[in-house]
Structure formats: C-alpha cells, structure tokens
Write a protein that binds this DNA or RNA. Structure first.
Length: 119
DNA sequence: ACTGTGACACTGG
DNA sequence: ACCAGTGCCACAG
C-alpha cells in the first residue's frame, strides 16, 4: 500500500502514541490520532497499525470500544485483550474502565502547586 | 488534478 | 441499537 508513509511525522507520532498504551488497557483510533496531535486523522491510525510491525495493535479499538476487525482477526484481538485482563461487555470494552489516559499535553504544565493568597 | 480506498468518527432517523 | 450519510486526510494510480 504505502510502505514509505511510515517515515512521515504523522505516522511516527501515531506509532509513538500507540506504543504508550500499556498492557491491560486500550485506546481508540480517534484518541490515538488526537494524542499524536492529528485529531482529524483517525483513519490513518489503521494504516500505521497495518504497516508498522511490533505495535500493540490489539489495544486499539473503534469508537465506543468496539472491535473493528472482521472475523478471525477480530476474535484474535478479543482473545489477546482478554488475556491481558481487558474485559468485554457484550461486543465492546468498557472504555470508562479500560481506556488509557494520555498525559494531558507535552506542552508545559510543570505542575505548579497552587499558591493561595494570604489574608 | 481527480478518483478510489481505508482496522474511522459523528450525527440523524 | 442498527444503519446510512457525511466529513475527514494522505496515498496510490
């Protein structure tokens, strides 16, 4: 398809975001794209998952926590996730409980203690 | 430049 | 809850 696209910043950023999702947690295409800094490129997440080897591909789900892969691949994904401890509610994962929360923003926000005014 | 193609997301019915 | 339609963006031909 587009083997070389994996070197573009878009693809690199997306791959990075995917790598940050820890075992036992999941994320979605949209969330990954957003975390990578490209909030409108959720469709490209799929491309990266397909072309970059070694990514925890099973941890990426469609919106709402639904599996987007057809049949066998889908079953395998579900199996792998359950093996890591991710539980399903019907056909979807309870994102409220298992979705990975990315660090707010690599911008700044060095956590400064709030200083209260004195009286 | 134009068209078709994605492991998508979101909104309405 | 399940479509269908629409928006989206980079890449291949």
């Amino acid at each position: 398809m587009s083997p070389r696209s994996t070197k573009l910043p878009l693809a690199l950023a997306i791959a990075d975001a995917i790598r940050k999702v820890p075992r036992g947690r999941v994320s979605t295409y949209g969330a990954i794209a957003a975390a990578a800094g490209y909030p409108r490129n959720s469709r490209h997440v799929a491309r990266v998952l397909n072309e970059v080897p070694g990514l925890p591909w099973q941890r990426i789900l469609g919106s709402g926590g639904r599996i987007s892969l057809p049949r066998e691949r889908g079953l395998e994904q579900r199996f792998l996730l359950e093996t890591e401890g991710v539980r399903f509610r019907g056909r979807k994962v309870n994102l409220a409980a298992f979705e990975h929360v990315f660090r707010p923003t690599p911008k700044k926000a060095p956590v400064k203690p709030v200083r209260r005014k004195e009286s």
